[in-house]
Simulated scan of single mutants.
Amino acid sequence: MKIVVFGATGGTGRETVTLGLAAGHHVTAVVRRPEALQARPGLQIVVVPDLANAEMVDDVVGGRDVVISALGTNARGPVSVCTDGVRSILGSMTRTGVRRLIVVSAHGAAESNDGSLYARSLWAMLGHKMRDKDEMEELIRASTVDWTIVRPPALRNKPHTGVYRVGTDLKIRLTSAISRADLADFLLREATTPAFLHQAPRIAA
């Protein structure tokens, strides 16, 4: 399967690239800087300094089977990385005819902002980033692509186990977490065997 990963240099993106290659997929990693990832067999590294460049994004999206977005930022204050990036990705998918989109969001975004202690705490700490995810999700839901929005709780740098729980009504608690490697495992599983088309599943260990 031909998979393109946006946000390939972040924690989840790197794990997605690694597991995707291990599974035998042809992976295209979109990066801002050529030195951001190490070359490996089966990996195509494409430098796109600005996702607003429609021609460059079209070139990496066109001909792929699945687009995975793990876009994010460590910046403080108001941000629009996820919204702007996904807007560009959706435009390219429309122009190139690619249908399948899997996007990492966060539990607490959109209707999963359920007033729970987890959601309230997340918004108190990361409100700017959560607003970005809200706007990103709105764009995705309004699109015509075959999307899945994945909503993890806290992300950990722990080994890949392949053991986790997934569901649209999964209970997320203040202590809930998932490793980036296991999140990547699910992204790839959903890419190859879609089980949550036009849904926003939650995932936790």
Rank of each mutant, 00 (worst) to 15 (best):
A154E: 12
D169L: 14
A22H: 11
D146I: 02
H26N: 13
A181E: 01
Q44W: 15
S69E: 03
A119Q: 10
Q38G: 15
V81W: 03
E111P: 09
P194D: 01
R76I: 10
V17S: 01
Q38W: 13
G127M: 06
A110Q: 11
I172N: 00
M136W: 01
L174D: 14
E137L: 06
L21C: 10
A23V: 03
L139Q: 07
V4D: 02
L21G: 05
E135Y: 09
V145A: 08
S88E: 04
L117M: 15
V67G: 01
S143K: 06
G85I: 01
I3N: 00
S80K: 07
S121L: 15
D50Q: 11
D58G: 09
L21H: 06
V60H: 02
A204H: 04
G62M: 06
R180Q: 10
L21A: 08
T161S: 11
T168F: 12
E15W: 05
V47C: 11
P152F: 07
P194Q: 04
I68S: 00
D50S: 13
S176A: 14
G10M: 05
T148V: 11
A177L: 15
L51K: 02
T12N: 07
V47K: 08
I172S: 01
G72L: 02
L37M: 11
S143W: 04
P152S: 12
I89L: 12
G97W: 08
K2M: 15
V5K: 00
E55P: 03
V57N: 00
T148P: 04
T73R: 02
A75R: 08
M136A: 07
V31R: 01
I203E: 00
H107K: 14
T193A: 08
A124I: 14
A70I: 02
V163C: 09
G91W: 02
L101M: 10
C82Q: 04
E111T: 13
R189A: 09
R40A: 15
S112H: 08
S88R: 01
I68C: 02
A119E: 09
E111I: 14
L101Q: 00
T193N: 07
V66G: 00
L21R: 05
V61S: 01
G10N: 05
A109K: 02
I140Y: 01
P78A: 08
A200G: 07
H160T: 10
T96M: 11
G108D: 04
K2V: 14
G72M: 00
G127Y: 04
H198M: 13
L122V: 10
L51G: 03
H107A: 14
T148M: 07
I68G: 02
K158H: 14
K171W: 13
V79G: 04
L90C: 06
G162W: 07
A184Q: 03
G127H: 06
K158W: 15
K171Q: 13
V47Y: 06
A36P: 04
V30Q: 01
G115Y: 12
M136F: 08
N53V: 11
D58W: 08
T193R: 04
Q44C: 15
Y164D: 06
N74H: 11
D114F: 11
P34H: 05
L43N: 09
T28E: 03
G20Q: 03
I140V: 07
V104R: 00
A54T: 15
A184D: 02
R40D: 14
